[in-house]
Each structure stands twice: as C-alpha cells, then as structure tokens.
Amino acid sequence: MDSGDSSTGPVAVACIAFITVAAVFAAPFLTLGLAIADGGVEPSSSGLTGVPDEYLADVQRAGSICAEVTPQIIAAQLDAESGWNPTATSSAGAQGIAQFMPGTWEAHGMDGDGDDKADILNAHDAIWSQGNYMCRLVEEVKALKANGTVSGDVTELALAAYNAGVGAVRDHGGIPPYQETRRYVERIIEWARTKYTMSRGGMAVGQLSPKLVMLDDTQIDIAAMNIAATWYGGPSGYTYKQCTWWAASRRQNIGRPVDAHMGNGGYWVESARRLGYQYGKDPQPGDVMTIRPGTLGSDATYGHVAVVEQVDADGGIVISESGSILPAPILTRYSRTQLDAVRDNIWFIH
C-alpha cells in the first residue's frame, strides 16, 4: 500500500483503506481475534474460550452472522438458557440447548448440520437457528430504534426480545421492566465479557519463531518484540504503520529475506521475482501474502501485504497485518474457501 515503482523504490504515503478496515465488518465470515491452542492460534472471534469442544465450531459459526451477536454472546446465551444441555426442557415448554418454544422453532428452526432436518433437540441445528434468529431480532430492534419506538443497546434489546418477545420490547420502549428479562440480559452480557472471552495480553501466539506477543485479543505488542516504531530501511523505505512496514519488519524479525524497496504491497510478487525470492500460490508460515489492489477489500491503488503467522489443517491461514489508521498491527484469519475465491489475485512469497 505504499506508492512507488517496484523497481525504483516507494514514495511514502499513508496506508489507508486496507483489508481489515475495509472488509471485516462487511464480511461476516471474516473473524478477527483468535484463541490460543497448542502454542499456535485457533480461529475464533475476540478470544473465545470456555465453549465445550463439541459445540465450538457451531458457536463460532452462529456468532459470525451479524456483528452485534458475537460468538461470546451465543456462548453465554446457551449457558444461560440450558447450561449447554441439548435435551433441556422447561416448565413453559421450551426445548433444547437454545430453549426454543415449539411455535418459535416452527417458524425459525433451521438445519444446521446439513442432514436436511431441523431438529429442536439437535444442538447443531439449534445453535445455528439461535444465531440466525438473534440476528433477525437485531434487525427488528434496529428498525424500532430508527423510528424512535425503542432506545438502548441493540444487542441488549435483541437479548431482551429473545427472552420476552419483540412485542414486549416495543411496548416498553426498550428492555421490559421484568426482573427475569433484565437479569437475563445482564447475565449474558457479563458472561460474554468474562466467562467466554480470553484475555491474551502479554501472551505469545503463532507458529513462527519468535512468536507474536499480544497486547490484547487482537493487537500485537511490537515493543515487546523489539520491532521499531519507525521507518523500515530509512526514509526511502516503508513508513511506520503501513502494511509494507509491518511485512518487512516481521520478515526481518523471523529471519526471512526482505527488501526495503519492493514497492506497492499489491505488487510485491513482481519485486520478489526481480530479487529472486521464491513465491507461489500455497501459503506457508512466514510467507508474505501479497494482495492485488481491490482484492479482499484492499486499497484500490496500492493493494496490501501481510505475513502468514499460521496455516491451519483445514487450509485457512492466520495473518498479521498493519495500517496507518490502526493503533497496532493486528491478527486476521482467512478460510480456505475465501483464499480459493481470490486465488488469481494473491501470491505468497516464501
């Protein structure tokens, strides 16, 4: 994302619209934030923790449908509803891990595991249905907020609607004054923040050596890693915080080849060819991921670069990336499906 001809060196400019800022909020399948697993990082969202292994993938998926309903909210809600019991029933007739009433299930139950059935007692179906239903409630309470009928936090209003119904939220102009509903909302918000969120400040993550040191769930502590908050390669190189600065700095940090004059991020593969660096289409830990302009939400002129910190067994990758509008470099994950969809416009410099 630095400007400049790849053969003569870049002219420094601000690293503006890039992948994470441009795309993460527009693409629900892109998850920011990762949980620690076996010395690496495991895809989740904002450090998800505490979820039973058999439901982890379901919770992550259901918590990636809309921004207001995170995996942590889904997890805390399931805990509050049933204590993770897939066959739970209530005196009121609610059933399953997400405690759907039969009438609500009839209208909103979905097949979550691909067996062509929507079973209220199938936890995979119920969790997927919960995420979709919660996001539907989000849209309903947003509409009520837009016309001035209700006020309050959208996620809290949606939780109240899940517990007491949208009609009760509408009639009371917000969270209803029911002790049960208010306690329900407060408990889920608190559990999502504490019980189901992992703090990673000071922890080391990734498959590379040295590992990344984290400031928090998403931001990288460059000071702890002895990476300088200054130009890379001097004033004719890469400006601090730009995507190219981070890619070059991290590559130097792990002892991989890099040059201070590789040009715009989206065209580093041409510079790699010129410099004799190996490159290809299949990612390996430590690779630079170079992304053509406009691909995956990158800048339409400069493109983007990032560093592959981990390659998962399913073919997805975890990258570290930077940009001038971020307070620090961050982590992002792309699935194998996402990478395959843009294969013609990305390269990996080994």
Rank of each mutant, 00 (worst) to 15 (best):
D2P: 04
A12W: 13
D53W: 03
Y55S: 13
L56E: 10
G63M: 11
C66N: 09
D79G: 02
D79Q: 14
W84R: 09
A88V: 11
S91Q: 11
P102T: 01
P102F: 00
E106R: 13
M110V: 11
M110W: 12
M110P: 00
D111T: 07
G112T: 06
D113S: 04
D113Y: 02
D119N: 10
L121E: 10
N132S: 03
L137N: 03
E140N: 05
A143I: 02
G148L: 09
G148F: 01
G152H: 02
N163D: 02
T194L: 09
M203A: 13
A204M: 13
S209L: 12
P210I: 07
V213D: 02
D221N: 15
W231H: 12
Y232D: 04
G233R: 07
T239F: 15
T244E: 01
Q252E: 15
I254K: 03
R256V: 01
V258L: 00
A260C: 08
G266F: 04
A272R: 04
Y279W: 15
G297D: 04
G297H: 05
A306T: 14
V307D: 15
V311S: 06
I319W: 09
S320L: 05
A328F: 04
P329Y: 11
R333Q: 10
Y334G: 11
R336W: 03
W347C: 07
H350G: 15
